[in-house]
Design a protein around this nucleic acid. Sequence first.
DNA 1: CTGTGTTCCTGTTCGC
DNA 2: TGCGAACAGGAACACA
Length: 282
Amino acid sequence: MTPMPELPEVEHVRRMLHAAMTGARFTRVVLNRKDLRHPFPRRFADRLRGQAVRRLSRRGKYLLVELSRGDHLVMHLGMTGWFRVEQTNRLRAKRLMADEALERRHDHVIFVMSSGLTVTFTDPRRFGMMDLAAGHDTHSSIATLGPEPLSRDFNARALATACAKRRIALKVALLDQSIVAGIGNIYASEALHLARLSPFRNASTLFAQSGRPRPGCKRLVAAIKAVLRRAITLKESERYRESRFRVYDRDGEACLTPGCRGTIERVWQAGRATYYCRVCQR
DNA sequence: CTGTGTTCCTGTTCGC
DNA sequence: TGCGAACAGGAACACA
């Protein structure tokens, strides 16, 4: 099973698309349906055609394609979205095998680029999204995002402040994209385990009476950065196929924290599965 | 306002 | 072996 797209997966896609699209123009844009999660914006294909790709960036789980006229293509992978990059001429010549045709049944958007590459967005569950925006931070979904977890802006003070008056569980807070951008269900559990913090702990307790972040808050920030960085590195090295998570999908197994004799449990929190060790996570 | 629950969607897994 | 039910969850929205 490929993990759901969270920040590391989206970053991997960004790098892939950067290599495939930067400098090239949209020669042809094909929409195989009129919507994904939301309808495509008006004249979507027309507004892309002829534009060159200046650069590809990422904000949280959103991909941003900066276009030559200055506007931006905003994309989200949802839960099952991904991109395929192929040589356009080989694609034309190809006769599809039955299983391949089955796989292509969820190809919703096709970008034929001037470079001779075709970039296809495929998404079985159609939770993905594509939109156009004037600037990189003018899109409503992106404007409300919290700090990038791997930036300097994301530190213990910033996290403690963002959580200060929130009476929600820590795990739920990490999933809130306005508190910190890019963390999903898997890495929320992973980071809390590495930081040895209980997912049930009230988020506001990261902030001490003295107005300073508690030690756990600093550990959590470090753990989030470590978990995300490791996942990005792992993907680049292609070793991620054999890698496993610390707690995610490990219920019933022994806790990996050195010296801890606990067992990983799976519990239900705000409609989501949370994996944790009740012995070392406090 | 704030937090919880539901909805969208389909491929995969599980139990009978 | 086959079939239906349960499950997976990002983000938006309804609602108390």
